[in-house]
């Protein structure tokens, strides 16, 4: 984002609205640190941020370069023009009753890099994807991040995107239950090497008797399953019964 220096009165009302802490007052005018800015667009939401001078604007050509990735991975109102895929991830469990993306015997994993609050760079994302690449992970085709990889087998990101920063980028893939332990171990190992955070998700299909036998396995690995979860009620049609 940019600030029209002619219009800016230096009132500073915009400062707390920036999730990247990229706005400061310099010489009585608000300035944006372009390297820190996620291009989320919060500062220009006129019904949320009431900049009295309407001084914020999107920089020309934003959607033409690699910086567009910041926008697409940070502003929920955008559709990814580089990858042609909307949103930061797939419909995951939300439509699993219809898509059967994760069936019995499998699990779906999502690693939400940068969430909560801190954001991420593509360099941090690649630390995780390249480590997972060593396990032969097949990254989710319908996730925009997968389309920014230059080698999907190795999990490496195109070099020109490495310095881009965003609110979050979601690494998604499915694996057989039998592969869960080595994959989780790799994720735990990379977690210790990151300069940011991630939220970890696991999708599982209820067993026929309604049980969830994966929970004790996770607990044996020292993973605490949080008490809140997202549950698909199986009311979509046609429903996948596997």
């Amino acid at each position: 984002m940019r600030i029209d220096q002619e219009k800016c009165s230096g009132c500073g009302i915009c400062i707390p609205y920036c999730p990247a802490n990229a706005i400061t007052i310099v010489n009585k005018k608000a300035q944006i640190d372009e390297d820190a800015c996620f291009e989320c667009g919060n500062c220009s939401r006129i019904r949320v941020v009431r900049c009295p001078k309407k001084a914020f604007f999107e920089q020309p050509g934003l959607y033409e370069g690699t910086r567009a990735a910041r926008k697409f991975f940070s502003d929920p109102m955008t559709t990814h023009s580089v990858t042609k895929i909307p949103g930061r991830g797939t419909e995951e469990v939300k439509t699993n009753d219809v898509t059967g993306r994760v069936v019995r015997g499998q699990i779906g994993i999502a690693i939400e890099m940068g969430r909560p609050c801190l954001g991420t760079s593509m360099e941090q994302v690649e630390k995780m994807t390249s480590a997972l690449g060593t396990l032969g992970i097949e990254f989710e085709e319908m996730n925009p991040l997968t389309h920014l990889m230059d080698d999907r087998e190795k999990g490496t990101i195109k070099p020109e995107y490495m310095n881009e920063k965003m609110v979050s980028a979601i690494i998604e893939f499915g694996i057989p239950v039998s592969q869960m332990v080595p994959v989780i171990n790799v994720i735990k190992d990379v977690a210790n090497k990151l300069d940011t955070v991630f939220s970890l998700d696991m999708i599982y299909r209820f067993e026929e008797d309604g049980s969830l036998p994966i929970v004790p396995v996770l607990e044996d690995m020292g993973i605490r399953v949080r008490k809140n979860s997202k549950v698909n009620l199986g009311l979509g049609r046609p429903v996948v019964t596997r």
């Binding site: 995951e92 469990v93 699993n96 009753d97 994760v102 779906g108 969430r115 909560p116 609050c117 801190l118 994720i187 735990k188 977690a191 990151l194 300069d195 940011t196 955070v197 991630f198 939220s199 970890l200 998700d201 696991m202 999708i203 599982y204 299909r205 209820f206 309604g210 969830l212 929970v215 996770l218 993973i223 605490r224 399953v225 949080r226 809140n228 979860s229 997202k230 549950v231 698909n232 009620l233 199986g234 009311l235 429903v239």
Partner: peptide, 21 residues
């Protein structure tokens, strides 16, 4: 009387948590 189909678990927050609020 609705039978759950599938679940997405939160396995928590990982990484450099020192910088979190």
């Amino acid at each position: 009387e609705v039978t759950p189909h599938s679940i997405n678990y939160s396995l928590g927050v990982w990484g450099k948590k020192d910088n979190l609020p």
